[in-house]
Design a protein around this nucleic acid. Structure first.
Length: 617
DNA sequence: CTAGGGTTAG
């Protein structure tokens, strides 16, 4: 810390010093000098500047103490109230900003347009819309018409709560609008998962900017419409350069689609723009590579980061975990601890997940039981779910069940499913049926995922009449669009396949190729298993449906297009069925190809007739 | 030496 030279102190000199926004250590020295030399009474505005500087250096408490002293007499100017509120809202202390607003009203100070914009922005971060509605009313009473800034923050506030009608109402009342008003309205529809309406408003916008595009792209990503997200991403060129937020969203879309080629292209774009090389972008790149099956590339991005932060570490650890590299995940976790970085709840979820899939019961248990005392992370239900999964997979069914029953949460579908899955792995029918009774009591919406597990449990025990029974129920409940969907990326284009698909333009050739594949794998002993396929079809159509199963179509297309030399990557969103597993093993052997399948968040690598994943079937 | 300082969307 450089001591300041205070030989020639005057109020004017201090005022000049403060106007240069000094660092916190210097602000404190100046503050001390103001007190020592009793400059306060001579110059009240020095206190204003001092508060300003404390806020600038994010020392809210110091600023607040000065502000509170100020409040008695004379009253602080509106500007200071506003600055305090803005600081609270910027630093995510939205409740404190609202408290201050209340205090302001109580002390008869009159809020202005700035006050309203800051406090309404804070209301957007509250749990409920109630506060925002009240303050909306006050803003209306305060002036004859709504200031554009105030109105825009109201639209943004209603957007945050997905209250499209309220947002629209404020928007319609405006006599003039700007890009903020429009973007906020688009954001309201996007938050409400209504991308059709969001798109309509987006089209009507008189002026768009990078944030408007970002809102659309992130809206598509959060409603799971990744292909459309990438289409918008491409459409924004060359009119707009994507900013960091857009790239992170686009990378997330690539990660979810397994779209490695497009992900690589974005990586190149980031590499050539130093301004885009933020921590968030690195985190998204690591995640993208990991989820596209390229843990080696993820590692390379991670290793280039000078001082990885907690988010970089978290995505690296989670990436290793979904690749079944539990030991490696723990290794990176320990490296992170050695760097004096404290894990957050997601980091711990990542490590536990890694332990779970690698059978590291000791390490996982130790992390689970010490997470609160060591790092102050209170276990959430997800952590219990992960731990139950860890114990269950390792065969400690009774212990896992005990945790599920005694944890401080009511077990949810995820926890019961983890147990049910463990019952399947360890062929424990009696435990499985007990868990099913718990699952049925939960009465929570869709049971399709549960029924898949249940039917697989019965199948693994050879109880075929039970399998048929469950499949019948499933056929009635399941959304046909949500099942049996696989996709593969070839040359930057994602090709999607469904059971009994006829939509693909090259479907005839793909079908031919599939016929050839099935003939060749028949020789090494693969026989299609009709019990796991397309339950809503009649017996007659089953034989064909077996041949048309979505993963097979994707693989056939991959072989036809010679994807990435030796390896074929398929991404899918449903559990790999036994039949698919068998055919992929056979194909990897006959065609001498490496086939990587991503099933939800897990990778299975098929190589020379074997699968890397031990715990699966 | 006083005035001015401060706004909204992902």
């Amino acid at each position: 810390m450089q001591p300041l030279a205070f030989s020639q102190i005057s109020g004017r000199f201090i005022s000049q010093l403060l106007s240069r926004r000094p660092r916190i250590s210097q602000i404190k020295q100046i503050h001390a000098q103001i007190i020592v030399r009793s400059l306060v009474s001579a110059r009240l505005s020095l206190i204003d500047s001092l508060i300003h500087c404390y806020l600038h250096s994010k020392s809210l408490n110091s600023a607040r103490i000065l502000f509170d002293n100020y409040r008695s007499s004379p009253p602080p100017p509106i500007l200071l109230w506003n600055l305090m509120m803005r600081a609270y809202s910027k630093l995510q202390h939205s409740s404190e900003a609202i408290n201050l607003f209340r205090l302001m009203i109580d002390t008869q100070a009159k809020p202005d347009d700035y006050t309203f914009t800051f406090v309404i922005t804070s209301c957007a971060h509250q749990d409920s819309v109630v506060c925002g509605r009240i303050i909306h009313g006050m803003a209306l009473k305060n002036g004859t018409f709504l200031n554009l800034y105030v109105a825009n923050s109201l639209i943004g506030m209603y957007a945050a709560f997905a209250r499209v009608d309220d947002a629209r109402e404020v928007f319609e009342e405006l006599s003039e609008t700007d890009v903020f008003s429009w973007t906020s309205l688009v954001s309201a529809y996007a938050k409400n998962r209504d991308m059709r309406k969001a798109g309509e408003v987006f089209c009507k916008m008189p002026v768009r900017n990078d944030v408007s595009w970002a809102v659309m792209i992130s809206g598509f990503v959060s409603s799971g419409r990744y292909t459309e997200a990438l289409r918008y991403f491409h459409d924004m060129f060359p009119e707009f350069e994507p900013n960091e937020a857009v790239l992170v969203c686009a990378l997330s879309a690539c990660a979810n689609l397994g779209s490695l080629d497009q992900g690589k292209w974005i990586h190149g774009y980031v590499d050539s723009n130093p301004s885009l090389q933020s921590s968030n972008a690195m985190t998204a790149l690591i995640d993208m590579y990991a989820k596209c099956g390229r843990i080696d590339c993820a590692y390379r991005v991670f290793d280039k980061i000078m001082r990885p932060d907690i988010h970089n570490y978290t995505s690296m650890i989670s990436g290793l975990s979904i690749h079944g590299l539990g030991e490696e995940a723990i290794h990176v976790f320990q490296r992170m601890l050695a760097e004096k970085l404290s894990p957050n709840d997601i980091t711990i979820l990542g490590v536990l997940n890694g332990c779970s899939h690698s059978g590291l019961v000791q390490q996982g248990s130790s992390i689970f039981y010490s997470m609160e005392s060591s790092w102050g992370v209170v276990p959430k239900i997800e952590h219990y779910g992960c731990y139950v999964d860890l114990l269950g997979r390792a065969g400690y069914l009774a212990k896992a069940f005990g945790i599920a029953k005694s944890m401080p949460f009511n077990p949810d579908v995820v926890v019961w499913r983890a147990l049910l899955s463990a019952c399947r792995i360890h062929s424990n029918l009696s435990f499985g049926e007990r868990i099913i009774s718990y699952l049925e009591q939960l009465d929570s919406g869709s049971f399709s995922g549960t029924n898949v597990l249940l039917s697989n449990l019965y199948a693994s025990l050879g109880k075929w009449e039970k399998v048929t029974q469950v499949r019948k129920v499933m056929g009635k409940q399941m959304n046909p669009a949500g099942i049996g969907c696989s996709w593969i990326e070839v040359g930057g284009v994602v090709h999607e396949f469904r059971v009994a698909d006829v939509l693909h333009p090259q479907i005839v050739e793909i079908r031919e190729k599939l016929g050839e594949i099935l003939n060749r794998v028949g020789v090494v002993g693969y026989a299609a298993d009709a019990t796991h396929v397309s339950f809503d079809l009649n017996e007659e159509d089953r034989e064909q449906a077996v041949a048309w199963h979505s993963e097979k179509l994707a693989v056939a297309f991959g072989l036809m297009s010679s994807v990435s030399g030796a390896s074929i990557r398929i991404m899918k969103n449903l559990r790999t069925c036994e039949d698919c597993h068998a055919v992929l093993k056979a194909i990897s052997k006959v065609y001498d190809r490496e086939i990587i399948v991503r099933d939800r968040a897990r990778f299975h690598t098929f190589k020379q007739g074997k699968c890397s994943c031990k715990d699966y079937w």
